[in-house]
Simulated assay, not measured.
Amino acid sequence: MKVFIVDVAKCNGCYSCQLVCKDEHVDNDWTPYAKPQPDTGHFWMKVHEKVHGQVPKVKLEYVAAPCMHCDDAPCIKVAKDKAVYKRKDGLVIIDPQKAKGQQQIVDVCPYDAIYWNEDSQLPQKCTGCAHLVDEGREPRCVDACATGALQFGEESDFKELIAQAEVMKPEYGLQPRVYYLNLPKLFIAGEVYDPELDECLSGAVITLTNEVTGAVMRETTDHFGDYWFRKLSVGSYSLKVSKEGYQDFTMPGINLQESTKVPDIALTK
């Protein structure tokens, strides 16, 4: 069974995967797997770009998202006349002959990975480049990835990576066959300084406590007075700053919904 592995940490946002998907499918008829993709409006491989945090504590992350080729795919369940099916290798295919007029196939996908071709009256999506896979080749998006952020192959060959990975929206319970490494998580970041000296303070100990679970994390400010807490979950946090020779500073009730830069913290002696 085939799987995709997407390592978000390796993606530099070049958009090659998105571009070559258009090149492979626009104006090309790959029946029985797909009719031509429209020039505009469809992104069978789509790169989602998101800015986390606020200046100057900012991270820009890119997440490539094709069809998830779910083992329990809702599109298969709503399709009439078996217009959507799963191949023996795990790729989910929309039959371009049988699926004509079946817009419910688009509407049921919780990942928004299926598009409606108004001219052809067809639901369409990533096929995993099944026509290339049949020839023993990789999907175009994988072949074009210069950083190795995208991989494709047999599930058995990726056991170690899959064990470290997660899937998109696991709460849906659809058993997608696209696995992600290093999916974006939230962070809290900031800076500590001495207002009298007007200097950044290195070596300050920052303690971050989850106010619900009680989990505690610690970081130390660098030479620029900066600190980062990464891979955080949504929740309420409290922050404490300590440094020898200075009064402790506390900041309770940080409601983390999106990555955030907290206000600069001034420590007094």
Rank of each mutant, 00 (worst) to 15 (best):
V192Q: 00
A146F: 12
P195F: 10
M251H: 14
W116Q: 06
D264Y: 07
S156R: 15
V92H: 07
Q18I: 02
E160K: 01
K77L: 12
Y172M: 13
E49G: 08
W30E: 01
W30C: 00
A83S: 11
K77V: 12
C141W: 03
A83P: 11
G153R: 14
G225I: 05
A130E: 15
P252D: 08
G253Q: 13
K46W: 10
N12W: 09
T220G: 04
V26Q: 00
Y237Q: 06
F187Q: 06
V55H: 14
A99D: 04
K261L: 11
Y115H: 15
Q103D: 00
Q37M: 08
D23N: 04
Q97L: 10
A215E: 15
H42F: 00
R230G: 02
C70R: 11
T127I: 01
D134Q: 12
F229A: 06
D107P: 02
S236R: 10
C11Q: 02
Q18M: 09
G153N: 11
F158D: 03
M1Y: 03
S238K: 15
D248G: 07
P184E: 10
G190S: 02
A79V: 07
G153F: 14
K59C: 03
W116L: 10
C21T: 14
S156G: 09
L91H: 11
R230L: 11
A113I: 11
M68I: 00
R177W: 07
